[in-house]
Design a protein around this nucleic acid. Structure first.
Lengths: 230, 230, 230, 230
DNA sequence: AATGAATGAGCATTCATTCAT
DNA sequence: TATGAATGAATGCTCATTCAT
């Protein structure tokens, strides 16, 4: 039994974990630029050499930290009502297409509901301590210049897309993620405030595909300009 | 008279400008973390003291650099056909609502067109050297942790929103910006490829406000799976 | 029974040998300064502790490595035609001194031949990958500051001198070694190219003692064999 | 006037020089491996940052140190009687070739003399503190793995060759340098003793081109300058 | 107004070695 | 007998900033 307050502590399992936790605290408090072997060692109360032993480079530590942060939000997502089985995932639109009118109505309702749930979740997340969101976005955005983080970000966006795919098609799911990112950033980067109503509206639009009103849907003239890309 | 071969260059107007240009090159090449008084002095070929003289802190230099980068994209935006006066800006959707049917048709056409123009612009931007986009996003996102940059980012998002407001309402304009950011980031952060079709589709949805149900619209062919990505 | 995919490898004979081989590769690739318990363990694919177990200090490992490198060149020397018994080793110049003229002629011919063989061998050695020579010289020269290596270097120079003594007297043999070292170093230290002709010429001179022809100039005390080496 | 013992010392010219001197002392005392920004700063009694300011890399410092060491030996060489104009430099052996017999005699005498002077100089150098020679050779040999030093070594060998060219042809001059290096190394690397007689003998041989006795002495095309160096 | 010299803090990383198993 | 974990020291280097000109 090691005397408390001292620092013999040879055998120390889950020291690795403690270091990751400390890294998240450091990034939260001082930003990624504030993360160094020294700062994290101090925060975790372990010797300097210990941090380089467990994570041979800072990138490695960042990867672990980002992955852990992702799990945090993933859990929040899962625990929220976003994924509640209000309506069965309409994975295949064709199956349920018995009564068009009813179907459409249901789909719009489901979309509204999902958008609202997402907007609420966003509000909850950003409403807490700003540090939390900032921390996660800082790690997330660091992938811009640190290729080592990119696979982890990809894992993350895939996971979100997949989760939302239970309530919409995969492509839309990705777009929802993109829009949520964009909205968060507008708030974070400009010292703005989060407007849940705005988020809900826009997410809803993304979920309700452009459907021209009561006219024979898209005229053929619509096809050509579709293909204008590249 | 300065001895030839030396580097006197006292009285040097636009030295300030040269420093900003150099800063952009440095950030493009080595990231924000690679920006220092030294690196920028070397890149601009000015004495070290000169950089601290003109920009007493790095933040100040970053502000100037971000502002200049913004102007670059602003110019591209203005020169593109995104803002072409195809249709008069329907600033207030209510005003033009004379003939619902015609109006709706026009609006859909205008939306499709604007979305396509934006998606194309995005493609052009990201299609060039990745460095360019990366550089701008790096400066832009740096505001997350550098309050000094936040006003500049706000200026920027306001400018974009205002520009787009000529073709849609201000709120939607902001959302377009958010979605564009989100899409760009998905590409940049995951080493992904830009899918113009996907971008066009989602921007279109954002531009086509949710039309309340009770009508029998949707043909199955119109459902989300249209957006074939990859 | 070790689980597959792991790396149990307890009882591993010739692990010691594998470590020495790895050390040579490491020095070849990264220089002596790049040699550490860690690098060699990685290169040999053995656990870190294993290197400190078999070689309690780096000097010990260097000794083993140098000895092994020497054997490599020793073998090359033996396999070359340098030691071919073209002419019987004129160990004692005096013995054969029957007919001065003939003898002198023969000796010149033998010297020319030996010098040519040595120069050729040098060319072959340095002509391959520069890494090989560099590696050996690096270990060899390390003795300058590492007394532990000096006995090994002495072994080596003695061995070379002894080998050459079959074709010339011991003192000259040592000088040949010295000149070869000097020539190699001129090439290695200045990024120069090896000039076999030059080497041959100078080795020949060393082998053909300044024997004043039929004139009486030099006092006998001046002749080379006077130089009693230790 | 700065208070002694303190360390204000802002304006300090020739601090650069002091650092180089300190570097030589450090290498002399602890070897190149013992040279670090810290050790040299301590030895020179300057702040750590000062060493990195004046020499942005250790290689740069080593270059300066080696150059300075070279100058030391160069001075010794110049001050010795090695270059004394005993006989006019027979730069072109052909010119003086009036009376073959006399000429040959003179040349042998000159060679003997030069060799003796060189051997004596070597003895003086190595006879002093071993540290001096060791230090210079350590820097010199470091070029093996540090390309940055190679040009300096080349400068040096060229300078020596050129100096000796006043007393012999350039190719032979280079060979003299090589042999001297080789002899020094045999002493330094094996804890041996310097044998001036041996050195003199071998240097003499190098200076006395193999001229077969009483036979028509090799056409001039065969003389040392044959060895076409680059 | 402009700048080169100077400096102390801090950085990521590598390392020989110790130690408990 | 081997070995993975652990650790404190050290290294090369970059830096923002200060200061005397």
């Amino acid at each position: 039994m090691a005397p408390p307050g001292q620092r013999p502590r040879r055998h120390d399992p889950d020291r690795r974990q403690r270091i990751v936790d400390a890294a998240l605290r450091v990034v939260g408090a001082r930003g990624i630029d504030g993360l160094s072997h020294r700062t994290v060692a101090a925060e975790a109360d372990v010797p300097l050499g210990s941090t380089t032993y467990h994570f041979s480079s800072l990138d490695e530590l960042l990867v672990a930290a980002l992955r852990q942060a992702n799990e945090g939000f993933g859990r929040a997502l899962r625990e929220s009502d976003v994924l509640a089985d209000v309506a069965a995932p309409p994975a295949d639109p064709a199956t349920a297409a018995t009564d068009p009118a009813t179907d459409a109505t249901d789909r719009v309702a489901a979309a509204t509901e999902l958008a609202a749930a997402l907007a609420r979740l966003m509000g909850e997340w950003i409403g807490g301590e700003r540090t939390g969101v900032e921390l996660e976005y800082e790690l997330y955005l660091a992938a811009l210049r640190r290729p080592a983080l990119r696979p982890v970000v990809a894992e993350w966006t895939d996971a979100v897309a997949e989760a939302l795919s239970r309530r919409t098609d995969p492509v839309t799911a990705r777009a929802l993620g993109a829009l949520m990112d964009g909205i968060f950033l507008q708030v974070l980067l400009t010292d703005g405030t989060y407007d849940e109503e705005y988020a809900r509206t826009m997410l809803t639009r993304l979920l309700a595909p452009t459907e021209p009103p009561n006219r024979p849907p898209l005229t053929s003239s619509d096809s050509p300009d579709t293909s204008t890309d590249t």
